[in-house]
């Protein structure tokens, strides 16, 4: 029994020594990719002009419609946009994304140009449908090494700030001159949408 124990001891020592020499995987003690993810998310919506004009159009239209649309649309849009992003990330196919984005700019721009005032639910549904296209197209491009949560947060904040820009510009429609400028902005957005539609169809 004792002999067996003595034979086992060198093996145990050897085993322990080998274990000590074994390189242990170092789990990162540092949060990585946080800043890169957030900044990339913030920059992403601004990188596509079709997205930018549509987001501003949402704010402009909200301002033209007045309360409660002025805040219902910017509250509904990010949630539906994220839903679109979720669909894209889950791999659920949605056809004609680029066309949908271009049409969103055309329709929203035209609404501002013509000062259309549909019932709130119609405006909300329209904006929600367009939001899905935008989310689907833009919400799934995480840069390598970036933090997905902070990227998403940055992306959503940037989109919300674009709405805010639209709302602030749209507030000018309280004045006669401002109304003309807002309508002209709507026309410009619709034309931009037409250009992107042409590009999407031709390409």
């Amino acid at each position: 029994m004792n002999v067996k124990k003595q034979r086992g001891r060198p093996c145990a020592v050897l085993g322990a020594t080998l274990l000590m020499l074994l390189p242990v995987l170092a789990s990162a003690h540092q949060e990585a990719g946080q800043t890169a993810g957030f900044v990339a998310g913030l920059a992403h919506p601004v990188s596509g002009f079709d997205h930018v004009v549509a987001m501003i159009a949402v704010g402009l239209w909200g301002a033209v419609l007045g309360p409660p649309a002025i805040w219902v649309l910017p509250v509904a849009f990010p949630m539906m946009m994220a839903f679109g992003g979720l669909m894209g990330l889950l791999g659920i196919p949605v056809p004609g994304i680029e066309i949908g984005i271009a049409v969103s700019a055309i329709v929203l721009g035209a609404m501002v140009l013509v000062q259309v005032r549909p019932p709130l639910w119609v405006a909300a549904v329209l904006v929600a449908i367009f939001a899905i296209f935008h989310g689907y197209a833009h919400g799934r491009e995480l840069p390598a090494g970036g933090n997905a949560l902070l990227y998403s947060l940055g992306f959503v904040i940037a989109t919300g700030l674009l709405h805010l820009v639209g709302i602030l510009l749209g507030e000018a429609h309280r004045w006669a001159m401002g109304r003309r400028i807002v309508r002209a902005a709507g026309g410009g957005i619709a034309l931009t949408g037409l250009f992107f539609l042409w590009r999407a169809v031709v390409a």
Binding site: P78, G85, L86, L89, L90, G139, L149, S152
Partner: peptide, 27 residues
Amino acid sequence: GIAVRVAGSWIAATGLLMLGWLAKMAR
């Protein structure tokens, strides 16, 4: 009060996108 609700919608939207990322990572 509206700004608070907008902040809530941003948080919800971030969560929805994150759920998508998680699903994508799991696949």
